[in-house]
Design a protein around this nucleic acid. Structure first.
Length: 480
RNA sequence: GUGCCCAUGGUAUAAUGGUUAUUACGUCGGUUUGUGGUACCGACAAUAUGGGUUCAAUUCCCAUUGGGCACCCCA
């Protein structure tokens, strides 16, 4: 490491030299990968792929807060954790998500593996979970099977804020039961994850009925729009033939009046679908979960039936500019019922409902929250800082640190740094109330110094009494 | 996928067709050898990459890569 300094300057020098000679063709072997930046020593510097990002230590607390909350709620509501492969046969997703959807047609990472099998990186988690349910015959387990998972999802979309090509989701599914309470239970879990973290949200909800009801409605909608085709924007003209339900969320001004008088799906639901939906809403009322009936909410995957919902930051509803997420990327979670998917994938009939929650988007909101109210998302809290001086003390340190751990005291420390000054600086920036100082002298006397960082008062205690002394101080600090 | 905007140390920034590219934060070290919060000193660290125009480019042009916005769509 000591020659780092000497190495750096020549590297810079070399780089400039090369530039000056850029007109001359480089010898073939010397050619770098031209599309990538060249770094020190002419080696290329790697960058993450477009739309892929790193989660760095400074953001860890937000991720940790989300995982803790999700785990807590999952266990309370009896969702068991499962893991399914990130890679599945491509046709699984094509069958489930649906040909003609953007996810399948333009966003899947799809390729042949070494055996020539067509595989895809999962563009959503539900298909894999249902596949797993069928493969392992989980309809023989007590129904419903309630599971959750978390992990990366891949979509080759154009990146934007709040949108990545590899992103992370929590995913909760209740498979094998059709009951409004199942729908609401899931919405409650999603809603509570946010609420427990201090994020107030609002649920948008709709019912898109069963296949027949939807088909009849789509026919009616298409019919209605066809008469007004001349007044529609180009996108809508396109949607009319490709994906009529999407006509409902057109943002073009000229299309709005047409939208307003368009038939609503709720009027085309049969008696039982309507009752089911009413029951869902009743339960939501019972729980005082704020929701908004949104008859334009249709969701983008083919497998949905009946209840569909999305969750938004409620600040967005009041004043979109006040929200942490803007534009069309502001849904924090989304899901719905998919009663026919298991059969579609060759299994027994297993009505189900589920939702996915976008972790990056939730992190964005948490960060904004922390900025507004510092301390709302606490990081790791240390009880003391442990400082050591000299070789003897360092040798003792690991042992003492281990003892502290067993007694439930959480120390911060840095065995790499030798000077006391530097260690105290670190302790100070960590806002730790006490520093334990172990030096040559203390090692010999079997004592240790406890320094109060606010008052600067120090006391020397016997190492054997350390635990008790710290615990007493920490307890005394607690607000009465 | 379509259209548009952007790119200087780890972060935030200044400046310029021509010697050592500004400042702050940061990180590391120091201001007498074992004592933090403030102060002072020092070190580290950048013009994304490739090509073109030019006597000369970090600055102008093109491409690539990455970021962002709107649309499409979605978490």
């Amino acid at each position: 490491m000591k020659n780092t300094k000497q190495n750096k300057k020549p590297a810079k020098f070399v780089k400039r030299e090369i530039k000056k000679e850029a007109n001359e063709p480089l010898p073939e072997g010397a050619a770098l990968n031209k599309s990538l930046p060249a770094g020190k020593g002419g080696k290329k510097i790697y960058q993450a792929l477009r739309g892929m990002h790193d989660v760095l230590p400074k953001d860890e607390k937000y991720w940790a807060a989300l995982y803790h909350t999700a785990e807590k709620l999952a266990s309370y509501y009896q969702f068991a954790r499962v893991e399914t492969p990130i890679l599945e046969e491509a046709s699984l997703f094509i069958r489930s998500v649906g040909k003609g959807t953007d996810i399948v047609d333009k966003e899947m990472y799809i390729f042949e593996d070494r055996d020539g099998t067509r595989v895809a990186l999962r563009p959503e988690p539900t298909a894999g979970i249902v596949r797993s349910y069928i493969q392992h015959g989980l309809w023989n387990a007590p129904q419903p099977v309630k599971v959750w998972t978390s992990g990366p999802i891949f979509r080759h979309d154009r990146p934007q804020a709040g949108r990545y090509r590899q992103f992370y989701q929590f995913d909760f599914e209740t498979i094998g039961a059709k009951d409004p309470a199942m729908d609401v239970e899931l919405i409650l879990v999603a809603y509570s994850i946010f609420k427990d973290l201090g994020i107030s949200t609002e649920v948008r909800i709709n019912s898109i009925g069963d296949r027949e009801e939807r088909a009849r409605y789509v026919a009616e909608l298409t019919n209605y729009y066809r008469g007004k085709r001349a007044y529609l924007c180009d996108d809508c003209k396109n949607r009319l033939s490709k994906n009529p339900l999407r006509l409902l969320d057109c943002k073009v001004e000229g299309c709005q009046p047409i939208k307003e008088t368009a038939p609503q799906i709720i009027d085309w639901l049969g008696e039982s679908s309507k009752n089911y939906f009413m029951k869902v809403l009743e339960y939501l009322d019972e729980l005082s979960i704020p929701y908004l009936l949104d008859h334009t909410l249709v969701r983008g995957l083919d497998y949905y039936t009946h209840t569909v919902f999305e969750i938004y930051e409620s600040a967005r509803e009041a004043d979109p500019s006040a929200a942490s997420l803007t534009g069309a990327q502001s849904a924090l979670a989304g899901g719905g019922r998919y009663d026919l998917l298991a059969e579609e994938l060759g299994g027994q009939s297993a009505p189900a409902v589920g939702f996915g929650l976008g972790i990056e988007r939730a992190v964005t909101v948490l960060k904004a929250l922390e900025e507004k109210k510092p301390g709302s998302i606490p990081g790791v809290v240390y009880d003391v800082f442990f400082a050591q001086l000299g070789e003897e003390a360092k040798r003792r340190s690991l042992k003492i640190l281990n003892e502290l751990r067993f007694s439930g005291i959480r120390p911060a420390f840095n065995l790499f740094r030798g000077s006391l000054k530097a260690q105290l600086e670190t302790a100070n920036s960590l806002k730790v109330p006490y520093v334990l100082i172990l030096g040559q002298k203390e090692v010999q006397d079997k004592t240790i110094i406890i320094r109060d960082m606010e008052s600067g008062v120090q006391e020397i205690v016997d190492q054997k009494k350390l635990e008790a002394a710290i615990k007493k101080k920490l307890i005394d600090r607690l607000p009465k």
